[in-house]
Design a protein around this nucleic acid. Structure first.
Length: 465
RNA sequence: GGCGCCAUAGCCAAGCGGUAAGGCAAAGGUCUGCAAAACCUUUAUUCACCAGUUCGAUUCUGGUUGGCGCCUCCA
C-alpha cells in the first residue's frame, strides 16, 4: 500500500516498523460538545483505513484519544455549572452514539488526557532535563529555539513563521513560537500536582504522552485534519523526538476539510452542523458514503443535496444486497452455468483486485466505491432467477466483504412483522386470482405500514421504506 | 508577507503520459396486470485558460485566471 506522507510530501510505500503490524494514533475529539460534520471526516476515514489494514492482514492497534482538559472544556463546564469530568463523561457517551451511527468502530484504546497526567509530567520532565523546556511565571514552555528540527512537518522555518505571524508578545515566553507544556493553576480551574506547581497540561503534550505510552516511542501512522499540521503535530514531533531522541512517527496522514457553501464551517457564519443535527434529517450511513465518495485529502463541500445523492446511491447498494439475499434463498444447488462460472472465476476476483488497487493507492475510497457499484451491476446481471448456489453465495459474500471493509451496508434487514408478511401473502393470492384492485389496495396498505412490496417471478420481496 | 492545496459533464467524483471509472439527476427502451427493482441505450471529440516538453498531455513544466487552506483554538 502507498500512503501520502505529509512529512515527505509524497506517496510512500507503507512499510510498518514491525512487520505485519500497524500502530496508528488518531487525534480524537475534545469532548465539550457533540462532534460536527468536519470531525466526522477523519473519524470515518481513518476508521476505514484501520478496517482496510486489518482486512489486508495487519495486526492493527488503533488509538484515538479524548481531549478532556483544555480551555474549551473549562469554559463549557463552567457555563453548565458542572465539573469537566462530568462534561467529558457526557460527551464521550454522546460521541459513542454518533460514532456508532456512522459505523465507526471503537478504538482499541481510547485514552483520556486527565487519566495520563503522570505520563505527561514525566515527559515534560524529560524535556526539561534535556534543556528543551523552561519554566516561567505562568507555566512550562517548550523551547523551540533549542530544538533544531522544529518546522519539519509544516515545512516552514521559525523565521518564516515569525515574519507574518499575528502573535501577541508574551512576556512568559522566550520566543513567540514557544508553546505551553504545562499551565500553572488559575483560579477556578482544574489542576493536578507537578514539580512546577499545580496546574494542567498543555494541549499538545497529551497526544505525545498518550501515543507513546500505548504505541511506543516510534510508531507507524498518525492521523488528523490538515489544520493540525501546525502547530499541533509539529509540536508533538518536537516534544516526542526531543524527549526520546528517536524518530516519532513514520507516516503522517492528514485529511482535507469539509466546507459548507465553499466556506469554512464556523459557528459565527451559521454554517455549522453537528452530526447530531444531520442525523435528524438524514441517515448517517448516507453521510458515511458521502465521506467515502471523495479522496480523503481533497477539500469537500457539504450540503443537503450531496447527502441526498449519497442516500440514493446507498439505496442502490441496499437494493442489490436485499435482492441478492433473496436470490440466495431460492438458489439451486447445481453446477453453475458458463455465465455464472465466469462470474465466479473471473469477474468477482477481478473486482476484488481492483478494489485493492484503489485502496492501496493512498486509500482511494472513491475508486473503491466505484468498484462496489460495478460489482452491483455484475451481480444484478448474473444473479437472475434460481442462480446456482455457489454463484449466489460468491457474489453475496464479496459484496458483504467489501462493504464491510468500507464500513457500509451495516443496517441489518430487520425481521418483517408477521402482519405485513400476511398482507403480502394475501396480495400474492389476489394477484394469482388477477384481482388487481385488491392487490393494489394491499400494496398501498403495506406501503402505509412502511414497507415496499416488489414482485418477482419467484414471489414477492418486502423491503423497509 | 511565508507555506501549501484545488479547478474533470446538470450535480458529485475517480483517473494523473497512451487517447475520459462510477454514482446522482434526466430521457428512451426491455421486463411487469400496473408498479418497483433490475438491465440496455443516450447525456464531456473533452478535462479553467495560454504557452512549452513529447510521437502522444486531462495527466509533466512555466505562466494566467478563478477558488480554498495553514501561519491564532480548530478535524
Amino acid at each position: 500500500m502507498q500512503i501520502y506522507n505529509t512529512l515527505t510530501r509524497r506517496k510512500e510505500d507503507f512499510v510498518p516498523l514491525n512487520e505485519g503490524e500497524a500502530r496508528i494514533y488518531a487525534c480524537g475529539p475534545t469532548v465539550y460538545n457533540y462532534f460536527h460534520i468536519g470531525n466526522a471526516r477523519p473519524f470515518t476515514l481513518f476508521d476505514t483505513l484501520r478496517r482496510y489494514l486489518a482486512w489486508r492482514g495487519y495486526k492493527v492497534t488503533y488509538v484515538q484519544n479524548f481531549t478532556d482538559i483544555d480551555d474549551k472544556m473549562i469554559n463549557a463546564a463552567h457555563k453548565d455549572g458542572i465539573t469537566i469530568g462530568e462534561l467529558a463523561d457526557r460527551f464521550i457517551a454522546e460521541y459513542k452514539k454518533d460514532a456508532k451511527a456512522l459505523n465507526i468502530s471503537p478504538a482499541d484504546i481510547a485514552p483520556r488526557a486527565t487519566e495520563h497526567i503522570g505520563e505527561i509530567v514525566a515527559l515534560i520532565q524529560a524535556l526539561a532535563d534535556k534543556g528543551l523546556a523552561y519554566e516561567s511565571a505562568d507555566g512550562v514552555y517548550f523551547d523551540t529555539q533549542a530544538y533544531p528540527g522544529y518546522g519539519k512537518l509544516s515545512g516552514q522555518s521559525l523565521q518564516d513563521r515569525e515574519a507574518g505571524a499575528r502573535i501577541e508578545v508574551d512576556e512568559n515566553k522566550k520566543n513567540p513560537m514557544d508553546f505551553a507544556l504545562w499551565k500553572k493553576k488559575k483560579p477556578d480551574e482544574p489542576h493536578w500536582p507537578s514539580p512546577w506547581g499545580d496546574g494542567r497540561p498543555g494541549w499538545h503534550i497529551e497526544c505525545s504522552a498518550m501515543s507513546m505510552k500505548y504505541l511506543g516511542e516510534n510508531f507507524d501512522i498518525h492521523t488528523g485534519g490538515v489544520d493540525l499540521i501546525f502547530p499541533h503535530h509539529e509540536n508533538e514531533i518536537a516534544q516526542s523526538e526531543g524527549a526520546t531522541g528517536k524518530p516519532f512517527v513514520k507516516y503522517w496522514m492528514h485529511n482535507g476539510h469539509i466546507n459548507v457553501d465553499n466556506k469554512k464551517m464556523s459557528k459565527s457564519e451559521g454554517n455549522f452542523f453537528t452530526v447530531r443535527d444531520i442525523a435528524e434529517k438524514f441517515d448517517l450511513e448516507a453521510v458515511r458514503l458521502f465521506l467515502l465518495s471523495s479522496h480523503y485529502r481533497s477539500p469537500i463541500n457539504f450540503s443537503a443535496e450531496l447527502v441526498e445523492q449519497a442516500q440514493n446511491g446507498l439505496q442502490r447498494l441496499y437494493n442489490a444486497r436485499d435482492t441478492w439475499k433473496a436470490r440466495l434463498d431460492c438458489a439451486v444447488d447445481r453446477l453453475p452455468t458458463p455465465k455464472e462460472q465466469k462470474l465466479i472465476a473471473q469477474t468477482l476476483p477481478a473486482l476484488k483486485e481492483q478494489f485493492i488497487v484503489h485502496m492501496d493507492d493512498d486509500l482511494n475510497t472513491a475508486g473503491a466505491v466505484g468498484v462496489l457499484y460495478d460489482l452491483v451491476r455484475e451481480g444484478n446481471t448474473a444473479l437472475v432467477n434460481e442462480p446456482a448456489l455457489v454463484a449466489a453465495r460468491a457474489a453475496n459474500d464479496l459484496l458483504a466483504e467489501l462493504c464491510g471493509v468500507l464500513g457500509l451496508l451495516y443496517r441489518e434487514g430487520e425481521a418483517v412483522d408477521p402482519q405485513i408478511e400476511a398482507l403480502a401473502a394475501q396480495r400474492q393470492q389476489a394477484r394469482a386470482e388477477k384481482n388487481w384492485a385488491e392487490a393494489d389496495r394491499l400494496r398501498a396498505e403495506i406501503g402505509d405500514r412502511g414497507y415496499i412490496v416488489e414482485d418477482s417471478p419467484k414471489g414477492y420481496i418486502l423491503k423497509k421504506k
